[in-house]
Write a protein that binds this DNA or RNA. Structure first.
Lengths: 240, 240
DNA sequence: GCCGCCGCTTGACGAATGTCAAGTCTGGTG
DNA sequence: CACCAGACTTGACATTCGTCAAGCGGCGGC
């Protein structure tokens, strides 16, 4: 692995606080690899050999039923580790992972990671913080699904994308609409109608480009809630 | 705290592997307390002062919107810690907690816990394992919500309750039907209809007592899936 | 340029679910 | 025992959402 890669890795939140020696041990067997679009990194039910860390690009996590239906559970952006829980406890993945945009992914051998965990207290704390973030994201999603209609979920999503949140904000959807629909828990057809319905709230869409006419009206429509919509990153176990 | 209580605590999975001295430090400021039905232990948005561990009884975690609607996210049974993620990262609770059955709850001061984490590597590993279990439960719930109809969710829930899973199995619902409906992501009215619909599959209900005529037919109806329905407890970070 | 594929939209329809209101049952209390 | 309150059920209806089919439109390949 190149030294430039090592620097990339050292900056990752899940390895936060490790000094160079400690980091070296963890990353000794790690691979930093590029994957093209559509690559399936692993499938649900498999035993985790690696902890994956998305360094660049975009990856989706999805679940499937035995009869072939699928649902997108999360769309990841750098930098984020995924399915830490499976890798740490050596239990089967509950979700599959597929590359959406050409991506650079760090793969840390799970066994080596678990071994280091017992030896390097700081590493365990970083992992705890990362896992806490991942847990809280799932709780937020459950609340989103159970407390909102699909159009409200779309509205909240658009509000989140409109950064900075100013009237007239314009941005690109991060994925195609089929994936987005699945992520939001609806069908592509229903997503089309939800976009149409938000026309009332001065939302305009052309292709993948969204324009938010009035942040205030969008807010008013979906009742954004700190405990559902806020994005948390880089929490710490020990505040000091 | 009585020595009997200490023994109770030592057996908890989230304190697994700690020797007596270490445990003593953690539990020095802890309280083991009884709460009556309906007690609200904390509300979403509050800062966590304690890590709660349900030792006996039953507790529900629920989320609410600003306009007062609520949804039950989890129903806990002993022994289980809850909202570990909030307590460890000192971030606001994403859910509220209410006592369903008279309960005995261990309250460990969050600050003391976080301090000990940095000092006791084994403690961090136990916490990682507990948090991993909690994360995976949330992922399972998201999959359940997005991949099944409400009647299938009920069927899967009944299958889970029928333990041992034999034809003619009879058991009591763990909560009243309003709470159960909310936990399953539907209205009480819809739950009534879902029970009625499962009559077709030889499910019978009288009051809170459920009888499963044929496990096979119930299985066939909801397509149980290891990666949604299995119950995981007491995972370990380091397998040895 | 033409064709065909794919992503997306639209419309019609039906199924699932929520809402509202009324009615039934039941368990506890005075 | 009668009564009441709360839990539950049922019915009628509205709404949301999914399904199916058709059609539009852009983009890449030939």
């Amino acid at each position: 692995m190149r030294t430039r890669d090592l620097e990339t890795i050292r900056a990752l939140p899940c390895f936060d606080g490790l000094d160079q020696d400690q980091l070296g041990v963890v990353t000794a067997g790690a691979l930093l690899q590029r994957f093209p679009r559509e690559t399936v990194l692993f499938e649900q039910g498999e035993r985790p050999d690696f902890l994956h860390v998305l360094v660049e690009g975009s990856v989706m996590l999805y679940g499937s039923t035995t009869d072939g239906r699928e649902t997108v559970i999360e769309i990841l952006t750098p930098v984020d580790s995924f399915l830490l829980a499976a890798a740490l406890t050596d239990t089967p993945y509950l979700m599959s992972a597929k590359v959406l945009e050409p991506s650079q992914i760090l793969m840390v051998p799970a066994r080596a990671l678990r071994e280091q965990l017992a030896l390097q207290p700081k590493l365990a704390l970083s992992m705890l913080a990362s896992l806490a973030v991942q847990f809280r994201r799932m709780v937020r999603q459950v609340k989103d699904l159970k407390l909102r209609t699909s159009t409200q979920r779309l509205a909240a999503f658009l509000l989140h994308m409109a950064d900075p949140p100013v009237d007239g904000a314009t941005f690109e959807l991060p994925t195609n609409k089929q994936v987005l629909a699945s992520r939001l828990g609806m069908t592509p057809e229903n997503l089309s109608r939800a976009f149409a319905a938000l026309g009332e709230q001065d939302i305009h869409i052309k292709g993948r480009t969204v324009t938010v006419g009035s942040i205030e009206r969008l807010r008013n429509y979906c009742h954004p809630d700190t405990l559902i919509d806020d994005v948390e990153r880089d929490l710490r176990v020990v505040l000091d």
